[in-house]
Write a protein that binds this DNA or RNA. Sequence first.
RNA 1: GCGCCCGUAGCGUAGCUGGAUAACGCGCAGCCCUCCGAAGGCUGAGAUCGGGGGUUCGAAUCCCUCCGGGCGCACCA
Length: 566
Amino acid sequence: MTSQPLPQSALRIFAGAIETGLAQRFPAAERPRVTFEAPRRPEFGDFSTNVALGYAKIARSAPQPLAQAIIDDAYARQPQLRELFSSIEATAGFINARLAPPVWHASLAHILRQGERFGQTGERSGRISLEFGSANPTGPLVVVQGRALAIGGALVNAMRCCGYEVFVEWIVNDAGSQIDALGRSLYARYRQCFDAQYPFPDDGYPGDYLHPIAASIAQTDGERWVGAQQSEWLAHFSRVARDAIVAQQQATAQRFGIVYDLWQSEAELHDAGRVTAVLEHLTRLGLTYERDGAVYFTSMQFGDDKDRVLVRSDGRPTYYCPDIAYHYDKLQRAERVIDILGPDHHGYIGRLRAMAAALGYDGHLDVLIAQHVAILRDGEPVGMSKRAGQIVTLDEVLDEVGIDAARFFFTMLAPEQPLTFDLALALQTNNDNPVYYVQYGHARIASIFKRAQAGDRSLLQELTDAPLGRLETALAALTSPAELSLARRLAEFPQVVLGVVDALAPHRLARYARDVAADFHTFYTECRVLDEDASIRIARLALCGATQTILARTLGLLGVSAPQTM
RNA sequence: GCGCCCGUAGCGUAGCUGGAUAACGCGCAGCCCUCCGAAGGCUGAGAUCGGGGGUUCGAAUCCCUCCGGGCGCACCA
């Protein structure tokens, strides 16, 4: 019992046979670029190539007869094609090939054997720095940051899955003037513990979240700071507020399932002299100049709209300045740097790219914008105004709909697409709610396994551990279109993950999860798993097992749980 | 005014490193439980892919232009 090649190998054999023939007929310089890939429409087979369309001109032949000639040549050249493909046809100039069922059986056997490891292709390598979620430490995380967290979290998982070494980071903007405002806000809350009439600063942060911190200071320090000068209390209150809020942000991120390797403090970059160093570096490169008492960076010559101020005329650096220091550091320690920013930062992209180019890392930096999130509660949009204190925090959303729904909904659309998050929909337990639909598929499979005989389960386990040929033979009972379509869908998983990473498109995971669940439900309706015929029963249980693995893996990359029951 | 993002069926979206009859969900019109979870499945109607040019054997996809919507254009972060 020899095992069959996997679909990807079959594709290489198919493409190889065709390209060898073409290489003999045409000189390399003239050969057009052609593709071998899975067509969108399944009725065009499992693999398709446009070679005949591409070569029609230099072959001086119409595509359709050329395609037929190429097929005939490939069959003659590579007899194995007859075994691997149930059909190879020329249609409208395309060549469409359909894999023979044994290849799908081999593919399923491979998935079952690999289990959790399936899809960990190692096809990519290198170090990536990925930054997302970063926020001023002036308040709790809000929904749009939740979206950045969900998108970033899925990307990290997918990148690691296909071999990248990813370093996940966050920068704490704890050096600007907003930190002073935060300190004054906390001080006002502290004073209000003793005197409710104490005025709150106009530029303060009005949310409720400072009250408990202030109360705790009042508890431990009493009235110690009441009579003090601002110069005495400001640094202390700023630091206490900053630390408390960062801790809270870290707790929220952790609760959401996002693990960071580094929370980089901006203030530390200043203290370590990194900001001064990068300023000097840019100056040495001749990329700075002074005007009106301020120091500018010549970002325009690197594609930015205008030159940007690095140091204000009063001597204080702008935010851009430490951010350059931070990015310089990231660019030096990773081959590729990716930032996921909020929608209010898209005007900042030009500056970031310019900086990377100026420092000698043109093309090493990618910026992804996680677009705006509108919250719909009871069908009504919820106000997002920070000034009115009407913020919707990520924690509130998590309290309301749970981690699973939040991660799925935030990731569901392309990042650059604005998202309307309907909280009521996320709580529905029906087909309208995509999270439930997918999780239901997983739970349904778990339920089948619970109902299956213990003997069947152990036989399946035994086959999975046995030589591959035995498992493939057992899977040969899978012959119906619904069964083979599902097998084909499961085999897509590694390619889907690669696509997510290459296109920075984590929403494809959500879509793929839905597709797998849909194909499974179709199979379930058409094929009775716990059939009287033992060989059919085992084969279908194996298909269920492979489906369960893929669903759990896909949901896992999204950071969504795969429940046994619901 | 300049820049970025978006414009695909009634609604929400995918497809955008060019391919074949434009895909998925909701909604709509029907149908399927004596049987493993109907929290499911099947069938159907519904789209000149914002308009107009161009490149190409082939354009939703690339280029130009116009129109519509969002956002950004700080010595804030």
